Simulated scan of single mutants.
Amino acid sequence: MKKILSTFIFLIILSCDDGDIIVTSFEFDDVDLQLCEGSITDEFVFFKINTSVNEAIAYRFISDTYSQTSETENDIIIDLNTDPDNNLIYRQFNSAITADYYCSNIPDSSIGVTDELIGIGGQAVITNVIVSEDDNDGVESTLESPNEIDPEADPDGDGVPNYLDDDMSDPTIGNEDATADSLGIEAGYNSDEDQIPDFRDQDDDNDNILTSVELPNSDPNDSSFADTDGDGTPNYLDKDDDDDGINTIDEDVDGNGNPRDDDTDRDGEPNYLDMDDDNDGINTIDEDTDGDGDPLNDDDDGDGIPNYLDANNPMNDVSNANEVNPSILDNTVITIFRTTVTITNLILNEENDQFTDDNFSFGFRDETVSITTPKND
């Protein structure tokens, strides 16, 4: 449904009491900042409603720079005036209102405005920044960082988060090692070196198996992360989960990009977790007959099936075992954008003792979205 902010368009029609307005409360600190988008392009209205005394304050503006889901490179600064396209209005009502008063096509005709103040001067300052990003993979972001450091924190106040900061205790040193080809992610924050820090990476070891899938172990009474080969590196960070000399991503023998559905010997254990992939009694790592550390390249009988998958079973036709995997899994990040709205040097159309501070803060509003991008971009 298109949202037409009729409340602002019909200001002249809606009547208010004459004389000085006595604001009885103007208490909005504990009230959520809400947002409606208008029916015309780039039209927005931020508002707060104090239901306890039937009052509200709203700021409507048009901007082709603002977006709820894009960071503002610089503050958006807009001069206030009485133009319907850019105004701040405080109102008291004769009955309770909801967000529909500002967001619906037609305002409820039974709601009357008893008092009104209009901002006739000042500036609106609007910013929108990312305050949190997480891959929602089941591992806390602090556990995906060295020494359980919050990767997004900025203890030295230099504007550079820890995972990019060359010296997190020195405000004069930021992300000095960033280049055109590298974000400059610090050591310990990016296990697979794919330019995505672990706390934003759904596949931390880049093996085409999501971290969330690699976490659980087979013991319901054990809360530790799964470590199939017992090498001290949990599966979600281990490029070779069964320590058979073949990286997990290369055990995708059917080449469909999913190592989880490949079980050559049909024993119920996928190859990437199976130390003997063809169940011939010889561990995969011991079928590296040329001793180069790569069982993928050993095919002693020349039948096109590498030894580690060849148990003299004609059904095991896996001649594509050495093919490059078609793609890396896309990566989805749960991202929280925070919009902050502040009115500076506010001038109202009437004097009022309640407005002793000409800088009015609307507070902030968070918008949570899932952003998916191809990981191999």
Rank of each mutant, 00 (worst) to 15 (best):
K2A: 15
K3W: 09
L5W: 14
F10M: 14
L14W: 05
D30W: 06
D32S: 14
Q34V: 05
E43I: 02
I49S: 12
S52Q: 15
A56H: 08
F61L: 15
E73D: 15
I76T: 05
D83K: 10
D85F: 09
N86G: 04
N87D: 04
T98A: 11
I111D: 10
V113H: 07
E116A: 09
G122C: 03
V131W: 07
G138Q: 01
E140W: 01
D150E: 12
L164V: 06
P171E: 08
P171T: 03
D181M: 09
I185A: 00
A187W: 06
Y189A: 07
D194F: 13
D194P: 06
R200V: 06
Q202C: 06
D204K: 13
S212I: 13
L215M: 00
S224Y: 08
S224W: 01
A226P: 00
D238P: 08
D241S: 14
G245K: 00
D252L: 03
D252V: 03
D254I: 05
N258C: 07
D261H: 12
T264I: 11
D267I: 09
D267H: 03
N271C: 10
D286G: 01
D290R: 07
D300Y: 01
D301L: 01
Y308R: 00
P314R: 00
I328W: 12
T332P: 04
V333T: 15
F337H: 15
L348D: 14
L348G: 12
N349T: 11
S361Q: 11
F362H: 10
G363Y: 09
N376Q: 12
D377Y: 12
